[in-house]
Write a protein that binds this DNA or RNA. Structure first.
Lengths: 223, 223
DNA sequence: AGGCAATCTTAGAATTTTCTTAGAAAAGCT
DNA sequence: AGCTTTTCTAAGAAAATTCTAAGATTGCCT
């Protein structure tokens, strides 16, 4: 699950990112409206948290420009206590929500989850499957017929991405960008290794074959 | 599917190429109008993305010269500002679509797909067929009655090109330029070999006959 | 029919891509 | 701090693809 955090205040941005990362969200950060807008157009996020007071371009403008472009990413606005009154009520509360700074961690996370659920990004039960493979998004764990696969975070995310795009080829680079992110020091050769790890954990159930190699292109989940 | 990206701004050119490559398009890049024009005349592309502001020769001129030569390749114009006169001018010259920078990845890809679809280069669901032969662009695989042909990339692209131009003769040189590209070290004799490989994979289904040799000219898909 | 050129076929060499292994580095936990 | 788990680096093995080369076959022309 990818989140973009647009916030100019460095300590707060770090805290928010940390909170989200601890919840296993993959976080990108922007420190002003323009950067936020750029990142949001270049990448596809599941959620954006957007400060309203921002240098260069304020949160409302970023939002408006994104919506004009057809971007429907659910957005959580952050606003200072003394400024709630103005435009907040004009928001489309179906796709958006707002939270007043300072806020409690749990409230923040609850709103994030709620937005994601409303947008259909996570199911109520938080489970996705492919054949007998089941991923529980709450536990961050995978199962086959009830047996836990004991996946690490990276393995889990790789498998998640595979299931999300079942029966479609994903390139190594796509995996890399999605699971490791652009700032990573590593090369996308790491993907091969993790595909290998995944197959190894699927092998005892005779399911290592579902991850197919498409030579010269990438990998896919099939049959 | 071959795309030519003509764009002088290096980061943007890289981003566009990357986006396209992730979608399994084969991308060539040109950094100015002259280079773009040259590449477009030397190779046969399925699509050109053409920046308007370019060094040496601007996008309009490139476009005009190509159309004058009879080149009908669908072209997507990129323009920095939403200036209506740009749009009108471009469309006058035969541009097929036009997108304003900066743009969202998905919008860009949607336009690319839509152009290719309009030009009949891809079917709606990413599948093209000839008789019982089916190519699935999502899987990069060919099928006959549901049986996979296990094509390599080169074989797939050759067959793809054949189906795209079914019942029309293509010269070895056309295959060579299209599948191997200009930078290739090989000679176009390699085409014979790959036609052979393809026939071999089609033979079990009694379909090796559909690839006909037209002596002294080339090959075609027929009956 | 014979000869010539184009095409087909085969085999294996060269290259590229992917897999596997092992261990080092980093991060997390108690 | 010390132990455990996870992540990453590196390099060689294995596998698949791509290409070279050469001889066989086919069709066309005189």
């Amino acid at each position: 699950m990818r989140v973009l955090v647009v916030e100019d205040d460095l300590p707060l941005r770090r805290i928010i990112s940390k909170i989200l990362e601890e919840e296993k969200y993959q976080v990108d950060q922007a420190e002003n409206g323009e950067e936020g807008y750029l990142l949001a157009t270049l990448n596809e996020y599941d959620l954006i948290t957007l400060d309203i007071m921002l240098p260069i371009m304020d949160g409302y403008t970023v939002m408006k420009k994104l919506r004009d472009k057809g971007c429907q990413t659910p957005t959580l606005f952050l606003t200072a206590k003394d400024r709630i009154e103005d435009k907040v009520h004009g928001l489309d509360l179906g796709a958006d929500d707002y939270i007043v700074k300072p806020f409690a961690t749990e409230e923040f996370l609850a709103r994030v989850r709620s937005l994601l659920r409303r947008a259909g990004k996570i199911g109520k039960e938080g489970k996705i499957t492919y054949g007998p493979i089941l991923l529980d998004t709450n536990q961050h764990e995978g199962f086959i017929n009830g047996d836990a696969l004991k996946l690490t975070i990276k393995e889990y995310e790789l498998l998640y991405y595979l299931i999300q795009n079942k029966e479609q080829i994903l390139t190594k680079d796509q995996f890399f960008q999605r699971v490791w992110g652009l700032e990573s020091e590593t090369t996308d050769a790491i993907v091969e290794l993790y595909i290998h790890y995944l197959r190894k954990k699927l092998a005892p159930f005779n399911f290592d074959g579902v991850i197919r190699t498409v030579r010269g292109v990438g990998y896919m989940l099939k049959e």
